[in-house]
Computed example of a mutant assay.
Amino acid sequence: MATLQRDGRAAVAVTPREIEQARNVRAFLGDRSTPAAVTVGAGVGQDLTLPPELTALLLRLVDLVGQGCTVTIGSIPTEVTTTVAASMLGMSRPSLMKLVREEKIPSHKVGSHTRLYSKDVLAFRRAQLERQSKAFEELRALEEEWGVLD
């Protein structure tokens, strides 16, 4: 594992062996109904069991590495500007402001500035992706029904 760190960012390159190890860990854990616990040992009698949230993050990371994915980890602020929210949604700021005016996405004012909670922006994005996926599946079903081929 090679790490390049610069300007508060780090890039970690994993080897094929580490990818295989991640696959083995994931296969060992399987699909559990109860979450696995991760315990880290720092010496004799110095064990720490990670909190469930951090365990879930680590296991998701292991899963993605095992799939050979490129993973970016970062924190999202609790509250974002309209410019950042528009970028998160892949749309223009005026389009976002229209959604805000139509109350399709929750917002609030900080002084004279409109702000959105990240959780609301991400929930809107998930719902938007679900609507798109559903529309795509309906289109595919129509194509099959009508016998339309590529």
Results as ranks from 00 to 15, higher is better:
148 V>G: 10
37 A>G: 02
81 T>Q: 02
96 L>N: 01
40 V>M: 12
141 A>E: 06
88 M>S: 01
29 L>F: 00
122 L>H: 03
134 K>Y: 14
150 D>Q: 11
124 F>A: 06
84 V>S: 09
45 G>V: 07
53 E>M: 11
43 G>F: 02
7 D>K: 13
61 L>G: 06
40 V>A: 14
127 A>C: 04
108 H>S: 09
35 P>T: 11
87 S>L: 07
10 A>M: 08
38 V>Y: 02
132 Q>T: 06
150 D>T: 09
5 Q>T: 15
43 G>D: 03
126 R>D: 10
88 M>R: 07
86 A>M: 08
31 D>F: 12
121 V>G: 01
79 E>F: 03
143 E>P: 04
122 L>P: 05
139 L>H: 11
130 E>Q: 15
91 M>A: 07
81 T>M: 08
3 T>V: 14
104 K>L: 07
23 R>A: 12
54 L>H: 04
119 K>S: 15
102 E>C: 00
119 K>C: 14
15 T>Q: 04
44 V>M: 07
128 Q>A: 12
120 D>W: 04
3 T>I: 14
9 R>I: 12
32 R>F: 01
137 E>L: 15
95 S>D: 08
23 R>F: 02
123 A>W: 03
37 A>F: 00
15 T>E: 03
65 V>L: 05
2 A>C: 06
57 L>N: 02
112 S>M: 12
130 E>F: 10
50 L>Q: 08
31 D>E: 15
143 E>L: 12
16 P>W: 05
55 T>F: 05
104 K>F: 00
8 G>M: 09
115 R>H: 06
2 A>M: 13
76 I>Q: 11
144 E>I: 12
51 P>Y: 00
46 Q>T: 09
24 N>Q: 15
105 I>C: 00
43 G>K: 02
106 P>E: 02
131 R>Y: 05
58 L>V: 10
63 D>Q: 12
111 G>E: 09
75 S>I: 14
117 Y>H: 12
60 R>E: 13
25 V>K: 04
133 S>A: 15
9 R>D: 15
9 R>C: 14
93 R>N: 07
49 T>M: 04
70 T>N: 14
